[in-house]
């Protein structure tokens, strides 16, 4: 009897310990998986509103296609509908882990596909408050992740993870993420500058279930220093739609199949 009790106690301790042992790195990994890698592929019609402090708006509208490959590699295909001067422009990324991505841009006015030399880490995505990294994810290995506390945000139980860039070349010195304990989506990210001051905040404003994948269909990134913010709405989202590998090619950058970019 005592032995049974001891064994039970032992298992309880193991499990309880195990649950607490979910470290910052694991939460960050699960969160990355939930936010950037769900499904085998994704198709979304995305509207981005760039809003100045005074309320002046500019709108970018695009179709985003994403497909997962082995070794956490991904390919992105983004086709622009708006504004008028970038209509028909298309953009392709081959995303790798541990090294720089490859990027191509199709310029419709001269019918040319060219590689572009923009780094992920500190480049604004089409002028918005999001960087390329915010759009397609950052290598987990580039930061150290520490679980600093648990918190409740908008009624959701969250882990709070502090991520500190290993290299000193980033705009931020640390990031705090509120990660939903149930679905591991980041509900809020706070970015602190080198002086330790909060300057950029990400919010997942609306989570919707799409084919069983919880998806942040409304997101905002706000720059507290400039007062500029970018609101993103995923108007149509779908997973596992059967995007072929061949889509990610120069041919389709120039002539995106209407079936996919509509």
């Amino acid at each position: 009897m005592i032995r049974t009790l001891l064994a039970a106690l032992f298992f309880i301790l193991i499990f309880a310990g195990g649950a607490h042992a979910l470290g910052g790195a694991e939460v960050a990994a699960k969160s990355q998986e939930a936010f950037f890698y769900q499904g085998g592929d994704l198709k979304a019609r995305v509207v981005m509103k760039l809003i100045t402090k005074r309320g002046k708006e500019r709108v970018r509208e695009m179709t985003m296609l994403r497909k997962n490959f082995k070794d956490k590699e991904q390919k992105y295909f983004i086709y622009f509908f708006r504004p008028a001067d970038v209509r028909d422009m298309a953009f392709m990324v081959h995303k790798y882990t541990g090294r720089d991505d490859d990027r191509w841009l199709y310029v419709p006015a001269i019918k040319m596909v060219r590689r572009i030399a923009a780094e992920d880490k500190a480049s604004s995505f089409v002028g918005s408050d999001f960087t390329y990294e915010d759009v397609s994810g950052r290598d987990l290995e580039d930061d150290t992740h520490e679980l600093i506390k648990e918190d409740v945000l908008n009624g959701r139980d969250c882990y709070v993870v502090k991520s500190t860039p290993k290299a000193g070349d980033m705009d931020y010195s640390q990031k705090l993420s509120w990660v939903d304990k149930e679905n591991f989506l980041p509900l809020k990210d706070e970015y602190y500058d080198r002086g330790g001051e909060l300057y950029r905040v990400f919010l997942a404003d609306e989570i919707k279930d799409v084919k069983g994948f919880p998806t942040a269909v409304k997101r905002t990134m706000k720059n507290l220093k400039s007062g500029h913010r970018t609101e993103v709405t995923f108007k149509e989202v779908d997973y596992n739609v059967g995007i072929k590998d061949s889509l990610f090619s120069e041919r389709y950058l120039k002539q995106p199949p209407k079936k996919w970019v509509r």
Binding site: A117, A118, E119, A122, S123, S124
Partner: peptide
């Protein structure tokens, strides 16, 4: 190459 953000 990119020299810094938004500068190539």
């Amino acid at each position: 190459r990119q020299l810094m953000e938004d500068f190539t």
